[in-house]
Each structure stands twice: as structure tokens, then as C-alpha cells.
Design a protein around this nucleic acid. Structure first.
Lengths: 222, 222
DNA sequence: GTGCCATCGCTTACGGCGTAAACGCTGAGC
DNA sequence: GCTCAGCGTTTACGCCGTAAGCGATGGCAC
């Protein structure tokens, strides 16, 4: 083998970013359930135990994956008014999450908050404070917005990627049963158009206009 | 052994409800991670494989556990006005979920909807329709309410039962770092009072009053 | 050159998981 | 007494996360 020229088969060395990226790509294809240390290792042409040099546990890996996804959320556009800024911030987060649906669940249920998540939270709070929210109101509103972003995406993936396949599964259940048993579901389900983006925006706008009215009711004094 | 009188050591026969109840009790104590077929079996003094006569898989068990919890949600009080009925319905659901925090995650992310969940959805839709929502609006509002109920509870348990123990973990993270990095978090975190019930109600009221205004904007025509 | 040591991926092993398949017991009906 | 269905058990397979230790590689001091 020549002394300098690297052989084409020389594989790139492992690194934490490479491990995380491979895991994210795998989860994008197979979902969170498809993630195991052995599978991620295989993805990188490496044994499972080798990953532990870059990741302290599977939980650490998943936290890092989540933070990686949140890192893709678009940054706030400081030129916009606070409410429009908040809207685009949240909408941007939602659109990224749709590309990595598996991330909503650990993002919601795991306690860790990485730097990307803290930045995102900071940006949301920044918009709320610029709008005149009291610290308390900003704090409460953040919770509402956060559970909307992650909770809604989670629901979407529940309905979409269910074992039963695709579509709105209530359809099937209700259609198969007596319409007298769940009369209101039966009434609504036939007429309603199921457009997830429009639903997300509807709820988001309800939240934002509710926050605006709360600010008007008790604006920040300091 | 006498022919009739049952010996005190005779153990009650297994049954689906008994399996589900034992699993719920175990999850209440240990969380969802503590659920394994072997552990649930041990709880009942039985081998893991015996459960499969009453439950077709672990997923089936978990779906049944979730529906069991949702079955505890209080029924709607038809005497109330639609908006107050909706409020108490949602608040009742939230309070039950707090007692079974593990249930929020599978309730949100698994595709199955058992009879209790369908009843609950039907009750919510009933209130919305009584309020004059169009079918489309009722449908959209349902999604917002649902992700609030389950998403919010999920967040609460994320913050509470984290590995780091108890309390608001952002505190620790932010306090340890440079306050310049996340200035808005730093501003808010010191002042805001963290009262999860009050936060839940705040967001709920924002949602309900948003729905009221949406009804006023485009009431149901049929 | 020689010896050393840090880096890093691999091997082996353990206990636990979900569950398929086949096995025994036990009690009721005849 | 025989049969048979109901029901809990045993055994086994392939997966999982990860603790512990091994071996190769390559840069560095001398």
C-alpha cells in the first residue's frame, strides 16, 4: 500500500456527529422503534459496542437525536412583529417535525433539554416578551405552545402511521359500528375535511389570539 | 380438602380484566417502562406466557390499559351549558390522567382507539356541536383539545419524573450556564410561578374562548 | 529504531425482553 | 373410567442494552 494516498476502502472514522446523523437517518426510515444500538452500528459498518465511545447510552443517543432535529427548526426572524414571528417560528418547527415524526414522542416525554431546545424555547419566550407578556404569562403560554407543537405532531403520526395503515382510523371503527353508539362522531366524521396543516394553524391561531387578549387584560408592568 | 369450601390459598382465576387491572396498578407504581409481560405475570403470581390467553400481545395489553384509564374520565354533565360542560369534561380527563401519567404517552402515540376513548371523543364533540360549531370546526377543535389534554400531561410528567429527579429542570440547566446565552429563559424563569394546574386551565380557557369566537365568526348552518 | 502509551473498534458475556410451540394438569360430562 | 376442553407451565429462539476486557494501530520521546 502506498505511504500517502488513502485507499478508497478506508472508512471514515466514527465520531459523535456521525453516529447521531446515522441514527437520525435510520429513524427517518424506520421510526424510533427501528433504533437499536446494533442496527445503528450496522448502518455505520461497525459493531454496537463501538458506539459507546461516542454516546454514553441509548438514551443519550436519543436525546442527541432529538436535539439534532430541533436544531433544524428555523431561527426567528427578528424583523417581524412579535406575533408574526411567533407564528412562523412555531409553524417552522412543526414543518421540520413532520419530516422527523419519530422525534415528537421523545421530545415530549423525555426530560432532557439540549442546547437546540433551549435556543428554541428562548426564541419563543423572546417573542412573547416582546409582545408584552408578563413573565408569568410568557411561561404559561410557552407550555401551551410547546404541547401544541409536539402533541399535535404526535397525534398526526398516531393517525397516519398506525398499524392499520393510513388515514383517519376513526372512520373505519365508527363506520363498522352502530352509528347510534357514537352519534356525534358519526355526524362529524362524514362532513369534516381532514387537513392536518390547516388544523395545526387553526389551533395555533387560537392560541396566539388568546395570548394577545391575555396581554391586553394584564400587560407586563416591567 | 373439603368438597365445597374453597381453600383460602386457592387463587382467583386469571381473566382479561384482572390482567389489565394488575398491569395498570404496576404502571401506576413503576411507570410504563416497568411493564413487561414477565413482571405483570409475577404481579399475578403467574408465568408471563399465561397472560397470552387473555391478551394477544403486549401492545394489545397496553392499548387496553390506556382505554381502562380513559374509562375513568368522568362522564359529561348534560345539565351544563356546552362550554362549561366542555371545560369540566376536559378538566376531569386531565385530573384522571395525572393519576396515571404513564398513560399519556401511549394514548397519544398509539393508533388504537378503544370504546372508552370513542365515548370520550363523542362527548367532546357533543359539547362542541351543542355550542353551534360547524362539523369542520368541531373536528378541528377536537384535535386542539385532544393534544392539549394528552400533550400537556405528557409534558408535566417529562418535567416531573425526569431522571434528574423533581422540579423544573430548566432551572438547573440555565442557572449553571451563562445567562447571556438564553437571556429570555433567564428572565422568565426566576419570576414565573410554576403551577401546573393553573397552566392547564389557562391554556384550556384560551382554547375554549377561541372556539367561542370561531363559532361567532362562522356558526353552523345546519 | 525501539519502546510506550493513547485511541478506538472488536469480542465475549450476562440478564432481560416478547412470544412461538408444545406440554401437563384438572375437573366436567358422559 | 374415559375423554376432552380449558388453562397455566416449560422450553426455546432471536432480539435487546451494555459491562468488561482484548488487540491493533499509530504518533511520540528517546
Amino acid at each position: 500500500m502506498p505511504t500517502s494516498g488513502s485507499a478508497p476502502t478506508t472508512r471514515e472514522p466514527l465520531s459523535r456527529p456521525r453516529v447521531i446523523a446515522a441514527a437520525v437517518a435510520l429513524a427517518d426510515r424506520e421510526g424510533l422503534e427501528g433504533i437499536s444500538m446494533r442496527r445503528v452500528g450496522r448502518e455505520l459498518g461497525v459493531e454496537a459496542m463501538s458506539l459507546y465511545r461516542y454516546v454514553s447510552s441509548k438514551d443519550d443517543l436519543i436525546d442527541a437525536m432529538v436535539d439534532q432535529v430541533i436544531g433544524e427548526f428555523p431561527a426567528p426572524d427578528e424583523a417581524l412583529d412579535w406575533n408574526e414571528r411567533l407564528r412562523t417560528l412555531v409553524l417552522g418547527a412543526y414543518l421540520v417535525l413532520l419530516d422527523h415524526g419519530w422525534a415528537a414522542s421523545p421530545a415530549t416525554s423525555r426530560p432532557s433539554a439540549g442546547p437546540a431546545r433551549l435556543s428554541y424555547v428562548d426564541a419563543i419566550l423572546g417573542a412573547l416578551l416582546d409582545g408584552g407578556c408578563s413573565h408569568q404569562l410568557a411561561h404559561d403560554a410557552l407550555h401551551g405552545i410547546d404541547s401544541h407543537v409536539f402533541g399535535f405532531t404526535l397525534q398526526e403520526f398516531r393517525l397516519e402511521s398506525g398499524v392499520s395503515g393510513r388515514g383517519y382510523e376513526l372512520d373505519a371503527i365508527v363506520a363498522g359500528g352502530d352509528p347510534e353508539v357514537y352519534p356525534n362522531i358519526a355526524r362529524v366524521i362524514g362532513d369534516a375535511h381532514h387537513d392536518r396543516d390547516q388544523e395545526f394553524v387553526f389551533v395555533l391561531d387560537v392560541l396566539i389570539s388568546g395570548i394577545e387578549r391575555a396581554i391586553a387584560g394584564s400587560p407586563r408592568t416591567i
